[in-house]
Simulated scan of single mutants.
Amino acid sequence: MRAAVYRRPGPAAEVFEIVELDVPEPGPGEVRLRMVTSGINPTDWKTRAGLTRRRPDGFQVPHHDGAGVVDAVGSDVAGLAVGQRVWTYLAAYRNRYGTAAEYAVLPAVQAVPLPDGASADLGACLGVPALTAAHCLGGSPEAVKGRTVLVAGGAGAVGHYAIELAKHAGAEVVATVSSDEKRTLALEAGADHVVLHTEPDVARRIGDLVGGVDRVVEVAPAANMELDLAVLAPGGTISTYAAEPELRLAGGPLMSGNVTLQFVLLYGLAAEQLASAVRWTSDALAVGGLTALPVVGYPLAQVAAAHDRVEEGFVGKVVLRPGEK
């Protein structure tokens, strides 16, 4: 099979190779997928660049997310069959066969049925962003049903799915964005209210729109903590998925507001927490509650350019199409 690999961390153009590998065989509890679309997340380029502790075991086929078709099933696998369309999550975690190849092998639990009406592009957009959003929202629809949610960075990948999952659960959603273009994206995702964070007195604007906020999904806690505390209702929760190099906290407002501050990293979640996030995502997907981000596609041979596009901050989803030349 053709695959994109890197053998050491470094700049994309220097370390990526397109190689021929033997098609891997699924072991017990695993499935093999013929990949249609491979989604790229910031965690993928950061790992390849050496910004995390993970290093290749000989070689690494990158990318956690994607959509494909079950090609072979190992022993002890139930609920999946050859020919079934699926989406993936965390495919490259502790596994050298990620989704940036014509075939991928991964634990069957990380291949989730993709409804007939959902495109491969949509399937490749889910994974890390949607599951992170679901956990930041409390892990199940009941956590935010009838509540008010503030999504910071509502045009980003996690922000997009935080809006859609919160609306699926019956929450009222206000999002902050940095431009009119991103305002349009957040409104299209279903946000009830969208506020430019550059507007004067943003906290009062949010308060006028929704009153107190029960939960914040936060992309930039260092920059936004003062705003979050200003709009958070007593007993509220701030869930952040950002790896800030330094975060200073105002202990008084946090304590007086009985605030819960939650840090979320998908890799460290327990199996039952991941399963809960997958269920919510799948349920929303089944009723048409989730949509694809703006997608730009590259053939496998242009994996370095695709990584550079993500690293440059493309608003939407960059994907590889392993079957394209």
Results as ranks from 00 to 15, higher is better:
residue 135 H to I: 14
residue 134 A to C: 11
residue 38 S to Y: 09
residue 311 E to M: 13
residue 18 I to E: 06
residue 140 S to K: 12
residue 241 Y to V: 12
residue 214 D to P: 02
residue 224 N to I: 05
residue 227 L to R: 02
residue 159 G to V: 03
residue 307 H to D: 07
residue 28 P to C: 08
residue 282 S to Q: 10
residue 22 D to P: 11
residue 218 E to K: 04
residue 108 A to S: 11
residue 60 Q to N: 11
residue 221 P to I: 12
residue 157 A to P: 06
residue 288 G to F: 08
residue 270 A to L: 15
residue 125 C to G: 04
residue 318 V to H: 02
residue 307 H to T: 06
residue 206 I to R: 03
residue 280 W to A: 06
residue 116 D to H: 06
residue 192 D to T: 09
residue 82 V to H: 08
residue 248 R to D: 14
residue 242 A to S: 14
residue 287 V to F: 03
residue 48 R to L: 12
residue 257 G to V: 07
residue 11 P to G: 08
residue 91 A to V: 00
residue 300 L to I: 11
residue 95 N to L: 04
residue 207 G to N: 11
residue 295 V to D: 04
residue 314 F to N: 03
residue 196 L to G: 14
residue 243 A to M: 14
residue 258 N to C: 12
residue 124 A to F: 07
residue 106 L to T: 00
residue 178 S to I: 09
residue 238 I to Q: 01
residue 69 V to I: 15
residue 102 E to L: 12
residue 176 T to I: 04
residue 210 V to T: 13
residue 75 S to T: 15
residue 63 H to L: 13
residue 102 E to V: 13
residue 197 H to S: 12
residue 185 L to W: 06
residue 7 R to T: 15
residue 20 E to P: 04
residue 217 V to D: 02
residue 146 G to L: 08
residue 189 A to G: 03
residue 31 V to Q: 00
residue 290 L to F: 03
residue 272 E to K: 15
residue 249 L to M: 14
